[in-house]
Amino acid sequence: MQVIKKVNNNIAICLDNNNKELIAIGKGIGYPKTPYKIDDLSKIERTFYDIEPSYLELINTIPEQVMNVSIKVVDMVRTNIDKPISSNLVFTLADHINFTIKLVKKGMILPAPLKYDIQNLYPKEYELGEKALHIISKDLSVLLPRDEACNIALHFINAQAIDTSSHNNDHIIISDIVDIVSRYFKLYIDKTGFNYSRFVTHLQYLLKNKGDHKNISSVNKSMFKSVTKEYPDTFKCVEKISDYLTHQDIVLSDEEKLYLILHINRLRS
């Protein structure tokens, strides 16, 4: 195996014997000067093919313990779901777990607007989300809210093979929303970057919940008021998005607006 680029001390971009690019994880494989050849393949702990380049930029922002937990959770998912699972799931899930832990430490709770849909329509994925919470609690010594089982399950659902040909209208709506954000903040949005991929993923989740709303919880109602005061410009942008979606027969709840505010702030960071 040929190491062609260091990501960090323990992660590198490599070429296999068929000259196919992959991400390899192994203790110290990023230390030597690249390019170099790894003759002892026992040094490689894990490999991941077909990773989107935009996800590489977030690897160094995620603690190693969180990445290891994500790998363990994805292994569990692969053994319990028959459909192909995207290799990108390890990285998007690790990012979500890391972000959620930071919010919880600040006393914030991510809403789960699709909770009842996921429980009823995707019971297996929801059950795996609950098991993931146990793994996170045990390995990272952090207790996440039970509703996080839904948010994690959404990552499992999104990582399964999807026929995108039937989602053209959703793609148009997503593109329009991204344009609204870009124009409002006079912001250049790098569509090859992970922040963009993360935002689009959330919009896909939002569109799954068209017209089916639950009342905002008392905890998130307080959080919504606080966040709208702290980020008034982002809230105004979300209101523009809400007006646009109303014309698409999609009415956003306060819970969904709260989620959008959080994700747009990440997009702007």
Rank of each mutant, 00 (worst) to 15 (best):
residue 204 Q to Y: 12
residue 189 I to H: 01
residue 200 V to I: 02
residue 206 L to F: 01
residue 200 V to Y: 03
residue 210 K to P: 00
residue 204 Q to F: 08
residue 202 H to E: 06
residue 167 H to G: 09
residue 232 P to S: 09
residue 198 R to G: 04
residue 232 P to K: 07
residue 226 S to D: 13
residue 226 S to A: 14
residue 217 S to D: 07
residue 198 R to I: 12
residue 205 Y to H: 10
residue 207 L to S: 02
residue 225 K to N: 11
residue 184 Y to I: 12
residue 159 A to Y: 11
residue 192 T to K: 15
residue 165 S to H: 04
residue 166 S to Q: 09
residue 202 H to S: 04
residue 167 H to L: 15
residue 179 D to H: 08
residue 159 A to H: 09
residue 158 N to L: 06
residue 204 Q to N: 10
residue 185 F to M: 06
residue 215 N to M: 06
residue 163 D to V: 11
residue 186 K to L: 09
residue 162 I to D: 10
residue 206 L to P: 02
residue 195 N to D: 07
residue 161 A to R: 15
residue 183 R to L: 12
residue 202 H to C: 05
residue 179 D to Q: 12
residue 162 I to R: 14
residue 186 K to S: 10
residue 172 I to S: 13
residue 230 E to M: 08
residue 170 D to M: 08
residue 185 F to E: 09
residue 204 Q to I: 09
residue 188 Y to H: 15
residue 217 S to N: 03
residue 181 V to T: 01
residue 212 D to G: 06
residue 165 S to Y: 06
residue 210 K to R: 06
residue 175 S to F: 12
residue 186 K to R: 14
residue 199 F to M: 03
residue 216 I to M: 07
residue 185 F to C: 08
residue 185 F to A: 07
residue 201 T to L: 11
residue 227 V to E: 10
residue 203 L to W: 09
residue 208 K to G: 07
residue 224 F to G: 00
residue 227 V to C: 04
residue 186 K to C: 09
residue 169 N to F: 02
residue 222 S to M: 14
residue 168 N to E: 14
residue 207 L to N: 02
residue 188 Y to N: 15
residue 177 I to D: 00
residue 196 Y to A: 02
residue 187 L to W: 03
residue 158 N to I: 11
residue 223 M to I: 15
residue 154 L to A: 12
residue 158 N to E: 11
residue 190 D to T: 01
residue 192 T to D: 12
residue 198 R to V: 10
residue 155 H to T: 14
residue 208 K to E: 07
